[in-house]
Computed example of a mutant assay.
Amino acid sequence: MLTSYSLAELGWRPYFQQQLSLAELESCSVARVSEQHRSQLQLLTEQGARSIQVTPNMPSICVGDWLLINDDGFVRLLERATEFSRKAPGSKLAKQLIAANLDTVLVVMSLNHDFSLSRLERYLALINQTGARPVVVLTKADLCDDIYSYQSQVQALDPLLDVVCVNALDQSSVSALAIYCKTGQTLAVMGSSGVGKSTLLNSLQGEETLQTGSIREDDSKGRHTTTSRSLHVMAAGGLLLDTPGMRELQLSDVESGIATTFADIEALAQHCRFSDCSHQGEPGCAVTQAIESGELELRRLTNYLKLSREQALNAASLAERRAKDKALGKMYRTIQGESKKLKKGY
């Protein structure tokens, strides 16, 4: 017997409803992408699970997307409420979709050698760009002797940031995350390989749905076990999306996300003597003065400048690629037009 869910349980909201015409409501149905494979998509619908074939004429689709479908398969992709993407790994000038239509993102980081404020700021910049709610989950609390020290370091990044420490193997500890798992709410779990994302997901589910790996003793890292993104309906009613650990998380088109993540630096910069101050030794720099007085940590400024440079470089590269593709397409159309004229004897 196929398990079916109402659209509300799958995260449906008025934002998506308003995109449908009366004709589409009568002739089609909606489905949410729960798994993405090379040749097919796994979907969740009111009638139960379904799969459709991936065809060359489909747009880029990712887990969490809402699709309009009929008996023959794919009809169209609905506009996303939120979209998570990154610059594709390596030197390739392309954007890689990660997930769509998320309400909350659990950024998982373990309380051992994996702990890194700079990497956390990178994730926060990506999340803040979309408007989804970031929640920092510090795992392996049972293996840490000074939890408060780590938690206070994260909280110092943003006093309003939700920070939760858990033992992912203990369901009573994980229950602190129940507020983010209400019916119809969609969460993503992001973090480096081996930080306990799959263990956390299993505890939230109340059962072991994903394989987990033990910790390597030499560097306190777990073995990476998740290899594909998938959407799970939790016992509490929410939907949880697990993503593989991403060792290379390059940023592009996240200028506002960086500004939100480093709001303290952005606010200080308003008081610099020069509007184009680079915060690297100019006279009258309020940011430099804040570092000298101990109000701002040098590490934070260094990471802010690093991420800002990376964002600017990747955004410019992608914009240049788009411009070249547009120009190439125009040239092809011109050549095709001239070829048709020649064939007609003009």
Rank of each mutant, 00 (worst) to 15 (best):
K197W: 14
S192H: 06
L210A: 09
L204V: 07
Q185I: 15
A188K: 10
L200N: 03
S203F: 00
V174F: 03
S173Y: 03
T186E: 04
G191E: 08
S175I: 05
C181E: 10
S193M: 08
Q205Y: 05
I179L: 07
A176H: 00
Q205V: 04
Q211H: 11
M190T: 14
L187D: 02
L201S: 15
S203K: 01
G196Y: 03
S203P: 06
T199P: 10
L187W: 02
V174A: 04
L177P: 00
V189S: 10
K197P: 12
Q205L: 15
V189L: 14
S203H: 02
S198L: 07
S173D: 05
G206H: 06
S198Y: 02
N202T: 04
S173C: 08
S175T: 03
T199H: 06
V195T: 13
S203M: 07
S175A: 15
L200I: 11
G191I: 10
I179K: 11
M190Q: 14
Q185R: 12
C181P: 10
S175C: 09
G194S: 13
V195H: 06
G194M: 04
Q211G: 05
T186I: 13
S193R: 07
V189Q: 14
G206W: 01
T209Y: 03
S198N: 13
T186K: 06
L210R: 12
I179W: 00
Q205A: 15
Y180C: 11
L200V: 15
L210I: 08
I179C: 05
T199K: 06
Q185S: 10
S173E: 03
Q185F: 08
Q205F: 04
G184N: 13
S193N: 11
V189M: 15
S198A: 06
T183C: 10
K182W: 02
L201I: 15
Q211A: 12
L201W: 02
L187R: 08
E207C: 12
L210K: 10
A178I: 13
E207Q: 14
V189W: 01
T186F: 04
V195Y: 02
L187P: 00
A188C: 09
G184K: 08
S192A: 12
V174D: 00
E207P: 02
L201M: 15
E207K: 09
Q185Y: 08
V189E: 09
S198D: 10
M190E: 06
L187C: 13
S198H: 06
N202D: 07
S173R: 05
G196M: 05
S173V: 09
S173N: 05
T186V: 15
A176P: 01
N202V: 05
L201Y: 12
A176G: 03
T209S: 09
N202Y: 00
S198F: 00
G196V: 05
V174S: 01
G191T: 14
A188P: 02
L204C: 07
L204S: 04
T199A: 15
L200F: 11
